[in-house]
C-alpha cells in the first residue's frame, strides 16, 4: 500500500520478504490409481500469517490440481474443512501456519474413523446418520402458538454452548471409541441432542434421552476429552456428554 510510513521504511521492509518456504506433507489417496494411501511433500512459499487452507489452495491452484479437499466458506463457519493437521483435528481455515511450527513439514491427513473417498475427502454419511438419529429439530405437542415461543435468558443459557456446533466432525473423528466401533453415536450427535434436550421449548427430551441410553449411546463415552480438545468452536463437548449422562441417571432415580 502507498502509505507514507511504508514508503519511508521502503527498501528494508520490502527486502525482508514475509514469505517462507513451508513443506506440506499430505496424505494422498486416489482409488483410481492405487488402493494404498501415500505421503506426498509439497514446498510452498507462504506468509506464516496465512492459514493451512491457503497453503492447500496454493498447492491445488499452482502445483497439483488433483489435490482434493473440502472447503466452502473458508472462515470457520461451514465446517467443511476439518482435517488432521500435525496429528490433531483442526479446521484448515482456522489454523495459522505460524502457530504450528512451519520449520518442520506440516502433515495434513483426512480425519480418522470415516471412509476416505479421495485425498482429504471422507464419506460423512455415517456421521450425519448418527446426527439424524438424535432428531436434531424442535418437537412440540399441542397447537402452535400464535406468537413466537418465548424463553427466558437463563433457559437459553442452559444449552448455549452446544448451539455453537458447526458439524465439522472434528470431535467425532477424534474419539478413540468411534475409531474402533463406528456404531457409537459420537460426540457431535450427543452435542446436538444436548442442544434440544436442555431446551425448555422442546418436548421430546425424553425420546432423545431414550435414544442415547442405547448400548451405543452416551455410556460408551470414556471421557478422554479428545473431543473437547478437538472442537474448533471451543464447545465443552465432554461436559455436554456428562450432562446427558446425569440427566439419564436423575431421570431414573
Amino acid at each position: 500500500m502507498a502509505t507514507p510510513t511504508l514508503e519511508k521504511a521502503g527498501t528494508a521492509a520490502q527486502d525482508a520478504s514475509p514469505y517462507i518456504t513451508v513443506t506440506f506433507r499430505i496424505r494422498r489417496f486416489n482409488p483410481e490409481v492405487s488402493a494404498e494411501a501415500t505421503w506426498q511433500d509439497f514446498e510452498v512459499e507462504i506468509d506464516p500469517k496465512e492459514r493451512v487452507l491457503d497453503g492447500l489452495h496454493k498447492i491445488k491452484w499452482d502445483l497439483d490440481g488433483t489435490l482434493t479437499f473440502r472447503r466452502s466458506c473458508a472462515h470457520g463457519i461451514c465446517g467443511s474443512d476439518a482435517m488432521r493437521i500435525n496429528g490433531r483435528n483442526r479446521l484448515a481455515c482456522k489454523t495459522l501456519i505460524k502457530d504450528i511450527n512451519p520449520a518442520k513439514p506440516i502433515t495434513v491427513e483426512p480425519i480418522k474413523g470415516l471412509t476416505v473417498l479421495k485425498d482429504l475427502v471422507v464419506d460423512m454419511e455415517p456421521f450425519f446418520q448418527a446426527y439424524r438419529d438424535v432428531m436434531p429439530f424442535l418437537i412440540t405437542k399441542g397447537n402452535e402458538p400464535t406468537r413466537e415461543r418465548l424463553q427466558s435468558a437463563e433457559d437459553r443459557e442452559r444449552f448455549d454452548d452446544t448451539t455453537k456446533c458447526i458439524l465439522c466432525a472434528a470431535c467425532t473423528s477424534s474419539c478413540p471409541v468411534f475409531w474402533n466401533d463406528g456404531q457409537y453415536f459420537g460426540p457431535a450427535a450427543i452435542v446436538n441432542a444436548h442442544r434440544f434436550i436442555f431446551d425448555s421449548r422442546d418436548e421430546a427430551g425424553e425420546q432423545r434421552l431414550e435414544i442415547l441410553n442405547d448400548k451405543d449411546g452416551v455410556w460408551r463415552c470414556r471421557t478422554t476429552f479428545n473431543c473437547t480438545d478437538a472442537c474448533p468452536r471451543g464447545i465443552e463437548v465432554t461436559k455436554a456428554i456428562q450432562e446427558v449422562k446425569r440427566a439419564l441417571i436423575t431421570r431414573r432415580f
Partner: peptide
C-alpha cells in the same frame, strides 16, 4: 486400478 475400476473402499462404520 483405473477410472472404471477403482480400488475398493472400506465399508463405512455406521452404515
Amino acid at each position: 486400478y483405473d477410472v472404471d475400476n477403482p480400488a475398493p473402499l472400506i465399508e463405512a462404520p455406521r452404515k
